[in-house]
Amino acid sequence: MKNYPVVLINTVLSPLSFLLLIAFVTKGQLLPDAIEGGFIMSMFNSGTSLQGDLAHLKNDFKLQDMVVSSPTSPAAYVTGMALAEVIYSTPALAVLTVLAAIYIHPGPLQVLELVSVFLLMFLTSIAIGYTLSTFSSDIVQSFAFSRLISTLFSTLPPVYYPITYIPLPFRYAAYLSPTTYAAEISQSATGLLSLSTAGTALAWVVLLVTTAILAVVAAKKARWREV
């Protein structure tokens, strides 16, 4: 980051560009939804960026081999690299936090709920990113996967706007993405979407179970040592 500050511009622009688009198209009506969507996209994209970065470091620099042959555990390696990704996202998160304070005014409990959802999104995407990176043998393939996952989970689903804007048959497809549940919980927490108690509980369960399953898959199936 210090040596190549230009990389920060992309991490700031990516979530904010959608936010601006939604804000302009809806004449500011969906700005709060878009701010929460920006948070979700930032956190989720940390994982997809992690996938590309880990695959790049593994295939082109042999960093994973160097770390495997050391006392460092896979969990320590992923945690360290994931935190590095969060640092890259810090400027975007700072801008979004300021916008949230101005346009959403969340109370302490709402902040807690939002932060929990965003952290779950982060863990989910980190688990996906790490697992896929260990199977990657080619950086072009890896970046293609990274972009595909980003599009499927943070661009296509109703993250920047309420799911009610999507025609009914397509909502079923949207519910295949954990980001949809994250957006529903966030929007419901701040009063942007009316969700029943059962609906909110279901969204939490789906999000928690998805995160747990992906974490187990990462721990058990990722290729730390090659076979």
Binding site: D60, F61, K62, D65, M66, S69, S70, P71
Partner: peptide, 14 residues
Amino acid sequence: RERIATVPQEARTV
């Protein structure tokens, strides 16, 4: 792994 270190073939500096 507590005792080993490696520089793999084709390893490059970042």
